[in-house]
């Protein structure tokens, strides 16, 4: 694959993701002020002493945005990685082993998916203590049902191919079949899926934080920042829109890259001609 073949839209997406990652990794060095540092009056406007103004407690919004990137991306990425590992291992096992293992896992998955994710999360988070690792775990488990569904579909598609049967006839074990025969062929659709799951995790985390059930203050995270500043809206103060916009921008960037990846996979599958 040559770099030239990457469309401009995907470049925009990649650039946005890189920017967010740089902010996340180097937050303490980039941010002009501290994460919890009160630097001025509340809700100072954009472009004055502070580039993006200040928030409801007089903290620098830009700094909080940069530190927020760190929390938001860390939690979303951890949840995605976890949900992906969980979903993939279970779905591939189900697709290869079949029989009652597949039945049990698939029915359990159906059950978990029959309740909308947010409703499920609300019920569970109402009970559990508010800790970051619990939040990550809940997000990962709920999300893994979607990974399971796609993973199983893709793996079943591949598992019925003759080369998998040939490997079975040769006497290969389940581990070889999963990792050497199926996984290499499932990578492209799953790569796109990973991007989609990450965008979803960012939005989901932000929504939970916005509802007061995600990251707890005073740690900065984008959804929570919207919640902190939402009361300004009625006075015409757009501070809540800045972190909201950051969430949207990151999600759009990821989706742009995903869109490109999906187009590439579909043309790999044969496409026209």
């Amino acid at each position: 694959m040559r770099l030239r073949s990457i469309p401009p839209s995907a470049w925009i997406g990649i650039a946005g993701i890189v920017l967010a990652l740089v902010c996340a990794v180097f937050a303490p060095w980039i941010a002009p002020y501290g994460e919890r540092e009160i630097v001025g009056d509340i809700w100072q406007p954009v472009g004055g002493d502070f580039l993006l103004g200040t928030d409801n407690l007089g903290r620098d919004l830009l700094s909080r945005l940069i530190f927020g990137a760190r929390t938001t991306i860390f939690v979303a990425m951890s949840a995605t990685l976890l949900s992906f590992s969980l979903g993939m291992i279970l779905s591939f096992t189900a697709a290869v082993v079949r029989g009652w293992t597949d039945q049990a896992l698939s029915r359990l998955n159906d059950l978990l998916m029959s309740v909308p994710t947010l409703i499920f999360a609300l019920v569970v988070l109402a009970v559990l203590p508010q800790e970051m690792w619990i939040l990550i775990l809940v997000m990962a488990v709920l999300d893994s049902t979607r990974v399971f569904r796609l993973g199983r579909a893709v793996a079943v598609d591949i598992a019925v191919m003759d080369f998998v049967e040939a490997a079975r006839l040769r006497g290969e074990g389940t581990v070889w079949i999963i990792f050497r025969e199926i996984l290499p062929n499932a990578l492209s659709p799953l790569l796109a899926e990973f991007g989609m799951r990450f965008a979803f995790a960012v939005l989901f985390l932000s929504t939970l934080s916005f509802l007061g059930l995600g990251i707890q203050p005073p740690a900065a995270d984008w959804g929570g920042m919207v919640k902190d500043n939402k009361d300004g809206i009625i006075f015409g103060i757009p501070a809540a829109l800045i972190p909201g916009g950051a969430i949207a921008a990151l999600a759009i960037c990821v989706n742009l890259v995903v869109d490109w990846l999906l187009n590439r996979t579909s043309s790999l599958k044969g496409g026209r001609g």
């Binding site: 080369f163 290499p184 062929n185």
Partner: peptide
């Protein structure tokens, strides 16, 4: 298993495209 081997109709799907 070794003594009985198989050749398929569709050679396309009988070989792992990533190998």
């Amino acid at each position: 298993l070794r003594t009985i081997q198989m050749i398929y109709q569709m050679a396309d799907t009988a070989m792992n495209p990533r190998h």
